[in-house]
Design a protein around this nucleic acid. Sequence first.
DNA 1: GAGCACTGC
Length: 730
Amino acid sequence: MLSTSASVKLKKKSQNNENIVNKHSKIPKQKSSSNGNTSKQVKSTNGSSAEKKYQVPPEIIEQKKMLPVYTAREALLKNFRENSSVIIISETGTGKTTQIPQYLYEDGYTQGGMTIAVTQPRRVAAVSIAKRVSQEMGVELGEKVGYTVRFDDKSSQLTRLKYLTDGMLVREAMIDPMLSKYSVIMLDEAHERTLNTDVLFGLLKSVQNKRKNLVKSNPNGKHKELKIIVMSATLDAELFSKYFNNAPVLYIEGRQFPVQIFYTEEVQKDYVDAALVTVLQIHLNTNKEDRSDEEQHGGDILVFLTGRDEIENLEKLLLERIVRFPSGVKKLLVCPIFSALPQEQQMKVFEKAPAGCRKVILATNIAETSLTINGIRHVVDTGVVKSKIYHSTIGIDSLSVIPISKASAKQRSGRAGREYDGKCYRLYTEDIFNRLEESSIAEIKRSNIANVILQLKTIGIDDVLSFDFLERPPIQTVKKSLELLYCLEALDDKGKLTEVGKKMSMFPLDPMYSKTLIKSVEFECLEEVLIIISMLSVESIFFIPKDKAKEVENIKNIFFSPEGDHITLLNVFREYQKVNGSPQWCYDHFINIKSMVKILNIFEQLVKYCMQSKMEMVSCQSDYERIRKCFITGFFLNVAVLQPDKKYKTMADNKEIQIHPSSFLFNVNPQYILFNELTITSKAFARNILPIEPMWLPEVCPKYYGRSPTVQDKSAQQSIKETTEAFKSN
DNA sequence: GAGCACTGC
């Protein structure tokens, strides 16, 4: 099936490889392995005899030497020896993530039982890289090489190279603030600037300092110095280097195929329509040739859009055109992909298109970093993304379509050049590109950070306002989070962590949820609250195809409870348990199996933490009033009152909001509601609605709600305002 | 009558 020109290219590459192989195969075998591979490593360990070792296949040893990072090995190690922090800039395909930890291991950084940690923003990456490295080192996964991600821990006392998600390392810091078992910590994909990576920047810098001082005052003590390695794909080297006391910056060249970039000549008003035209142009233009040329025909098309709606619209438009293709023109197979799409439908994008057919993949940002699809040679980039932004002044998230950054545009185009050279069609002008921001706004600057602050306080960082962030979150956001934590009694009036706060921080939940959970013991409904919170931790439990809206109404009625979305979700979980998680039952009820599995995992984990906190597992049976009251303990600031125009006003600050159409209570309009989250899209929408009785407020929350909170009575607002003002001035 | 991008603990 391979065409001539493609095979030439392939051949070129393999010739290249052969050269390198030849060069190295001249080195006598023993010398090659004493160069730091396999046999030496196995001998040099003083691990237990139970440790399993395998012969590393020679092709793996050869592959390792062909990676671009291999030529930089000595230079890297020299820099690591001479500096306590090093920044590495490298594109994809250098092998840095798999190789550098091994080099460090070979250079003795794990002596004395120390461990090297490598963080990843995503679970799958941590797991798959650890698997690969264990193969390369010929060891059993979970022994010398391991990984730790939520719900899955393959590491042990023996583990010397540990791959973990950035969030997991933050958790470890909550238990051991000095991270004393690690000699080296590598932050991979640092350019992505996830919330947790940013927290780690600050934490590690402070830990490095503290450990340095400890070593100085007691060179033979138990503490050793900490080495920090930051790995990034883009050129924000300056920012990182400066932050880590002018750490040296090393560049490793990657192996990407060239991608030709095209811009539109004019600004596109309707980018979905522009995408439609571009896809058809790509397809028809590369379809005219008679020869079955991989270069001409082959290569699937990847289109970046902002959400499900756009994807389904474009899918429809394409399908209309495809049926009208003249005979002789290849068919197009349209594959939508976005996170909420059920797993089995997602898998379609990974299948090879049938003969005489080309795939066009319509994706959200999920295809930018989270998953890699083979066979892409054409990328269509609309230049926009849907992004969540926290507005600290009003304390609400908004979800809106915004222009991408240059870094993001580069990442998208790179998706066309993974296996061959490719083409990227940017549906905006070059001038617009030039005016894009260099990189996207870091998550820490556009998120609610109440949870981060709770974590920092637990680690022992009390003065959050002067914490050395790589980039500071807005001061308003910090203040708002401190206020919230104070309202939830996680902090006392001096800003110190309370006992409740300590307990809250142990749960992998936002503070309002962890407070509710802790309080549920008093309300004798821990079991139900655990289930509900697990359900609320997962999005898109239902996946409803557009044409099934009518059927869905009937299905929803099966679970519906007038006592609120929370109780309805509890009913779903109970029914799911009754049928033993039957996939057919899920399918018949439009329930996403993957979501339910995740909910079960979360539920089990929360139960485990509750046991550790010695919380009594109590159930309220069908006395749901207890649950509704209990949620007030965490969400008393999220209460709203019905207005004559069917809209709602929040009691805390008189914001006008509406019930989101996804709520089971949409159109029911109870007088008083409690909601879990508020997001502005076209309007301010409240999601997950629980009807409550007004007299419960002073009963459950006397501190904030006076004796009779009515719409006219401003006392609740007043008291919330006064208390937070008093806290602010402290 | 209107809509949830993505990830992590």
